[in-house]
Amino acid sequence: MNRNVILAIVGVLGAAFFIAVMLSFGNDPHAVPFMLEGKPAPAFSMKRLDADGTVNLADLKGKPVVLNFWATWCGPCAQEHPVLEWAAKKYGNDAVFIGVVFEDTEEATKKFLAQRGSSFQQLYDPQSTMAVDYGVTGVPETYFIDRNHVIVSKYAAPINMSTFDKHIAQILK
């Protein structure tokens, strides 16, 4: 084969690679895709942590749901906690607020909530089954689920007030 042909092929492949690399700067390789957006929320039935009884997604028919996955050892979760308290007071009548604690102990969570306040119900997911069903990739993560129990969006970082307002507007429509 002609040497120049080989060099040309190498050049073309190299050019494609260069373009791809240039386009890749700024992409976060650690970001995990989330495919459940627009899909029905997975059913769950979990023990309550702050009171007796279990919570069933099916029992919340017709109500928008805000799900927050968190853990006590996670610093950003503690930062986010006041925002959720504020949001639960503001939107508590329009949507159901549910916190889900996983990869944590019941004891530590109760202590945390007693110290920092708890204005919405908390579930305990000892085996992380619910977290796996929801495709959780870290803590904290907040899911916004509409009346028909379709996941409208997920926010995978500590949320602030204005972001929360924007996201919840989508499920209250």
Binding site: A16, F17, A20, S24, N27, P29, A31
Partner: peptide
């Protein structure tokens, strides 16, 4: 090693 990066850049697929 580089394929995932190239595909994401050119096809926006992870």
């Amino acid at each position: 090693t580089t394929f995932p990066m190239v595909v994401e850049a050119l096809q926006n697929r992870r």
